[in-house]
Write a protein that binds this DNA or RNA. Structure first.
Lengths: 216, 216
DNA sequence: CGACATATTGAGTACATTCAAAGTCTGTGG
DNA sequence: CCACAGACTTTGAATGTACTCAATATGTCG
C-alpha cells in the first residue's frame, strides 16, 4: 500500500557529550534527532523509553495486517509521547519532519517524583485528546472532521494562520477518511469561505464559519 | 432524540455509617449505589471525584448539540473511571445497570502514594483502550466493529459465553454505527456461524470464526 | 391480554469510497 | 533559467457500505 523508510533510531542517535543534558526541561535526559519519516519506535517494540518533543512533529500510527492505517495522535514541541500501560508499544511513532526529542528511561521516570508527575499529566492530557478523537471518528461527518482538525491545529499553534505539517494521507489516516475525501472537503471549506489556502499546507481561517462547521 | 432520566447522584447516595468504608479495596473511600440509567456525573461537571466499580457496569457518553452520541468506554468491576486531565468532565457517566461504586476525592488521591499509582495505572490502561477504540472507529468495517466488540467483552468476562449488559443503542454509539446496522451485523455473524444468540443479550462464540472477522 | 420498549428486517438513499485522470509543486540537472 | 521527473494534490465518474425511514417481530411488565 504505502512504504516507509525503516531505519534504526540509533543510526541518527547523537550521543556526543555535547548532546547529553541531564536536567532542566523536565529532567529528560538524552537528546536525539530524526529525519523526516524516520521511525522512532515500532509497533510491538518494547516500551522502555519515554519521549518529549523539542522541535518538529511526530505521528503515532497503527498498521493493520492488510495495510489499513490509523493515526493515533500528532505531537508537537513540548508534548510527551511513548507512554504505555503495558510492556510494549501498541502504535509506532515516526517523525513528521526533521525532529529533535529528549529521551528518558521509563524506569528512571518511575523513580523520580517530579518526572512521574509530568508524565502522569501528559498521559491524562493524551487521554482527553483521544476521547475528543473518538467523538470525531465515531460521530462526525467528513466535513466536520476536517473542520475540527484544522481548528484543533489552530488552537495548538495559536493563531488564524495554520500550517499543516503532515500530508493529506496523514490527515486522512487521522480522520478515518481517504485522501480524496480530505481533499474534497478542503475544497468545499474554501468554496464556503470558511478557510483560504495559500498552498496545500498553509491554511487561513476566515472568521467563525469554520467553527460552525466543526460542530465541536 | 433519546431521553435520559436525569436524577441527582445524591438522591441515591447512601451515607449511613454502615456504608462508609475507609480502607481496603485500594483505599477508595465511600460506597455509592446507582440505579439503571442514573447519571453518576455530567458532561462539563466539575471533576473532583474518582470512581471505582465494585459491581455493575458504567458507560461514559459524549452528547453533541444535535443529539448525536458517542460512548467513550464501558467500565466493569475493578475498573477506575472519572479521571480527568482538566478541572471538568468531558463525558458524562451513567449506570448501565444497578451499580455499586467506591468514590474518593481527587485531592486525596493526589496526596496518597499508593492511590496515585493505582489511578495512574488505570489512566494508562484507559488510554490503551481508547487507542484500540480509535482504530476500530477509524478503520474497521461494521462487521469487524461488532466482531471486535464481542471479542473484547469476551476477554473481559473470560469465557466463550458473553453477556451484553448494554442495549443495541449503546453498542451502536460505542461503535459509531446505528442500531439497525448493529442488528444486521449480529444477524450476519450468526448466519456465518461465528456466534450464536440465546437471546439478544446472550452470545456464544463459535470457534475461531469471530476472531478472523474482527481483523484485530 | 394489552401496552410499551427493544430488536430485527426490508427498501431506497446518501455519503464516502474506489478507480481513474489531470493538475500542481519541488527539486535536480542540463 | 528552464525542462523534466516524481511526489503530492485535486477533480471526475461510478460504486458500495452504512444510513434513513418504515414495518414487523420479540420481549417485558402491568
Amino acid at each position: 500500500m504505502r512504504e516507509f523508510t525503516v531505519s534504526t533510531p540509533t543510526a541518527t542517535l547523537v550521543m556526543t557529550p555535547a548532546s547529553v543534558s541531564t536536567s532542566h526541561d523536565g529532567g529528560f535526559g538524552v537528546r536525539m534527532t530524526f529525519a523526516r519519516d524516520e521511525e522512532i519506535f515500532a509497533q510491538e517494540e518494547e516500551a522502555d523509553l519515554i519521549y518529549k518533543v523539542v522541535s518538529g512533529a511526530v505521528r503515532t500510527t497503527c498498521l493493520m495486517a492488510d495495510g489499513r492505517r490509523q493515526i493515533g495522535s500528532f505531537y508537537f514541541a513540548g508534548d510527551v509521547f511513548g507512554v504505555e500501560a503495558g510492556e510494549f508499544h501498541r502504535f509506532s511513532a515516526e517523525a513528521l519532519c526533521d525532529l529533535v526529542v529528549l529521551v528518558m528511561k521509563r524506569s528512571l521516570v518511575e523513580r523520580d517524583e517530579a518526572l512521574r508527575t509530568e508524565v502522569w499529566r501528559a498521559t491524562a492530557q493524551e487521554l482527553a485528546r483521544a476521547q475528543e478523537h473518538l467523538l470525531l471518528l465515531g460521530r462526525k461527518t467528513a466535513c466536520e472532521k476536517v473542520a475540527s482538525f484544522i481548528i484543533d491545529l489552530a488552537r495548538r499553534q495559536g493563531g488564524e494562520k495554520v500550517f499543516l505539517p503532515m500530508c493529506r494521507q496523514d490527515m486522512a489516516d487521522y480522520l478515518g477518511l481517504t485522501i480524496e475525501t480530505v481533499s474534497r472537503m478542503m475544497t468545499q471549506l474554501q468554496a464556503e469561505r470558511a478557510i483560504a489556502l495559500d498552498d496545500a499546507r498553509r491554511v487561513r481561517i476566515q472568521g467563525p464559519a469554520l467553527e460552525r462547521m466543526a460542530s465541536a
